[in-house]
Amino acid sequence: MINSSIDNLISQIDDGALIALPAEYSFVPMDVVRGLIAAQAKDLHLLCVPIGGLATDMLIGARCIETLEAAAVSLGEAGAAPRFSEVVVNGEINMLDATCPAIHSSLQASEKGVPFMPLGGVIGSDLVVHRKDWQVIDDPLGKGNGRILLLPAIKPDFALFHAPLADRDGNVWVGKRRELFTMAHASAHSLVTVERIQNECLLDDDLYAAGTIPSMYITAIAEAKNGAWPLGLAGSYGRDNAAIAEYARAAKTQTGFEAWMQTHLAGKLKCDAGVGA
């Protein structure tokens, strides 16, 4: 559905769903994350593609996550992800540690419709010991490669991301952020927020078409100005480093996190009105 609302996107995500979110160098749908928190989503299985940041930490702090699969979770230059660090030590979520290319490969398996994908390296890492769903086999084709790791396909219920631009036909432009293509291909549904919806079809212009996810992969699109705030949207706006640093300080405690979330939502309204970031 084109021109849906964020509330409508959120309402499609049932408790317990497997959702995939991009890393902070890509296009993170912070308005949707805020919406999930406001709707008190529960027991979500979050797949970070492949690393988590502010969005992941906020969803953890708001008790929305039951299982987390990630190669790492960090706030980048703002330091450790405070809610993640505490909750994992306390054993309050089911943590599936991975490594970046393993997550990409598992999504590529779904993208190709095959049940698993081999990946080089990794053997000898304790990740393999703890990931009961991963399996090491002898090279079945006898190519002299030795043992190799197999990773199960991951098929998210929902790929969630923000993008600069969509069109009235439901095509979404993400440019070179091609991990979003992989996420959309691999997932049952893609729920997308965009800065802007244009009338002209993106596929009519080859310069745009190459970076456009066709509507066949997209379930719903909602317009969301500054929808990645306080994270940036490359080519559109930068990160609000002050807001992120403030979060990193406040969220060191659960109480601080909860207080920050309230002001934070108000801060977003200010930002939308063009006052803030």
């Binding site: 492949p50 690393i51 990630a70 190669a71 790492a72 979770v73 960090s74 450790a80 992800a81 993640f84 660090s85 994992v88 030590v89 054993g91 943590m95 540690d97 991975a98 490594t99 970046c100 290319p101 393993a102 990946l119 080089g120 390296g121 990794v122 890492s125 990740l127 703890h130």
Partner: peptide
């Protein structure tokens, strides 16, 4: 997995 102090994670190191 019962770490006493948790750090971000393995990133792409294992590859």
């Amino acid at each position: 997995p019962e770490t006493t102090r948790r750090f971000p994670g393995s990133f792409g190191s294992a590859y």
